[in-house]
Design a protein around this nucleic acid. Sequence first.
RNA 1: GCCCGGUUGGCGGAAUUGGUAUACGCGUUCGACUUAAAAUCGAAUGGAGAAAUCCAUAUGAGUUCAAGUCUCAUACCGGGCACCA
Length: 802
Amino acid sequence: MERYDPLKIEAKWQKIWETDKTYQAGKPDESKPKKYCAEMFPYPSGAGLHVGHVRNFTIVDVLTRFYLQQEMNVLRPFGYDNFGLPAENYAIKTGISPQEATTTNIQNFRKQAKKLGYAIDWDREINTSDPEYYKWTQWCFLQLYKKGLAYQKESYQWWCPVDQTVLANEQVENGKCWRCGHEVEKKKMKQWFFKITEYADELLDSIDEVEWPEKIKIMQKNWIGRSKGAEITFGVDQDGDNMGDEPKITVFTTRPDTIFGVTFLVLAPENELIHTLVNADTREKVESYCRAALRKSEIERQENKEKTGVFTGSYAINPATGKKLPIWVADYVLSGYGTGAIMAVPAHDERDFEFAEKFDLPIQLVVEKPEDSTDDDQCYHGEGTLVNSGEYSGRKSSEVREEIVAWLEAMGVGRTKVTYRMRDWLISRQRYWGCPIPVAYDREGNIHPIPEDQLPVMHPAIQDYQPDDSGRSPLAKAEDWLKVTINGEEMTRETDTLDGYACSSWYLWRYTSPHDQLAAWDPEAVKYWAPTDIYVGGDHAVAHLLYIRFWCKFFADQGLLPFREPIKKLLYNGYINAPDGKKMSKSKGNVIDPLEVIDSGYGADTLRTYEMFIGPYDQDAAWSTEAIGGVYRFLNRCWNLNFGSEVPRVDDAQNVVLRNKVIKKTTDDLYRNSFNTVVAGLMEYVNQLYKVGAGEADIIVLAKLLKPFAPHLASEILEKLGADDVWPKWDEQYLTDDVVEVVVQVNGKLRARLQVESDALEDQEKLQALAIADSNVQKFVDPAKIKKIIIPKHAKLVNIVV
RNA sequence: GCCCGGUUGGCGGAAUUGGUAUACGCGUUCGACUUAAAAUCGAAUGGAGAAAUCCAUAUGAGUUCAAGUCUCAUACCGGGCACCA
């Protein structure tokens, strides 16, 4: 009798899979069903794989192997999201170049992933920091640039004073840098943007077409934040002097129906119009208020909810009433949303109400709260009947909204307008370890894209990676590199690099032809394999998953992709926490190292199976050092079923029902991604076989069903029994036992369990008679008083109602 | 504040269409094997009760022959957004 030695058999099979290239994806073959499965590729940190990666990758692997065993053509690639700040910060500290440090990290990641026995096509490995890869990232940038979707703009940007770089909106969390946690500031800088807002409507509307968790869809919808409303222009009445050259103020509102309730206007401190609205008396006060507001960090601006503001000294005219409206400046109005100016309706907006109360501004009620409203806020912001609204009084606010806009439009001061919360994607970074932006500037500062035949623009080797607050990246220190000749003209290179999210916005298509020298992706390969059928990850709900949808739509519009959504189905996995339920972290010393788990003797099969058994894949789970022992015992029992002597061999016919049931349950559960119950079901099956004995067919079925989870162990058993790994099918006729249990309820309470021939299930009268005849049932039922008897179709149950 | 989730034994969790609540695993207890221990195998394990039986899926109501599952309210926990006009 051989003992189960996971480390020995795992090394054996991993070597076979590597030598035979077992998991190389097949050639595009339209006659075969295809599946393209991938995880969100990892950032290869120096710490190596953690148990969260293992959960993420194993989900992909289970599905990959499930499809492979069903003889589909499966693409399951792997790669590294290799640009990022940790490698650069490491370089600053140690002087070791990011190229060198990340090469070591990748080797480690690759070695560790191979120890987990994943069915990866290793010939398709990609790495975003490889010039062969980022050449095409730069090419993608140039395509966006050519179509006007990559542009430069000078504006106030999030700036992290620790990382010394600007950040995208999506990278600012609670006013803090997503990487280092330091408070961000606003800095006026010229930066590169991708015009994601161009696709705002489609990104919002088509998200319902994909099979993604509702949670992620809602987050993206909220992030895009489409609001329908109107822009309304207010004339300014400066000292009664009607020279016709007064500024005009345009505001955005979702409630044009409340126009009669506007009692003042408010501008954001960043609004340029302010300078034309101040007068000799107010100039100093207003300008110092604006300066102070801009100096404040975003946290400070958010924390102080107490309204502040100053009067500009100017008045606007309400086009609906002709009344004079004081114009104020206040930092509760955001510069980046709408027009950076609002019409204040203090009677019906909480923020305007607070402001009006504080500065003693008039409050004009224009919407009457319906009597049945339960809203008890000080100012009612729902729908209702208009009052004090001229000819519109007495009508419903929701009904006249469009009419009022039409009326304002007729006067030339209004139009309907859709506004989005989402801003354009800020992509330039003042850091070294990112993809260089492939443009240069001539002497006049005009932008010239680097010609495509001069790509890639490579990183210059530098000695000093330390960024500074000059607003230029460390690349600026490479003076020779800076000079470039385009069409005979000497120019200076752009020194900013691209946000790492740009590199991951097209990699799913690169995987389909990863070594293509002539194109970012081969049109035929991408057409066959993409879009990605199953994509698994537990992060980037808005950022990456929104950006890759944006690029997909853009490249579809260029005729380069034959689909408009890159990911059909998204599985969003939960985290694995430390045994104490807290997040694993080095500083807390509660990190579980998956490689240590394997090497301690459990092996990769136990680790993989345990992480699938730990709970529903989409929920967070706490690691348990005891429970993993249970999974190891289970795999041992599987092994001993074949290689041990405790369980007697029986005829294949004996367990035919048991076998067919487990095939059906496993298959159904895999289709609904219920990995934990698959493992539970297989445990139950094995427990049964230990009781009744196992036939060879029973063991083969077990090995086949187990293979997605514990591929090494399963391969060993299948090899020994000379069986293939083709996914087994069940036969409906073998799903029912000869004798089944039927429960009898009286008024819904369980009173008896009957063993009946399965044929009797179809015979309602017989079931009724058997139920009533039961002695315990008779204690609760007077046959004369039976009101009705219910025998549901899908349950082996009789309910007698008395 | 707003928008999503969630709450089932000592613990992780199962219950797919409203139909036997607590599958499976951990832990605990007992037994077999052993000089002994570990490992392994087997049995028991929601609470109360001698038993019949009764009570249990966060709390309170409702719908139904039947509710963990549907409806309404409340509490608590987690996540997302957060002055977006």
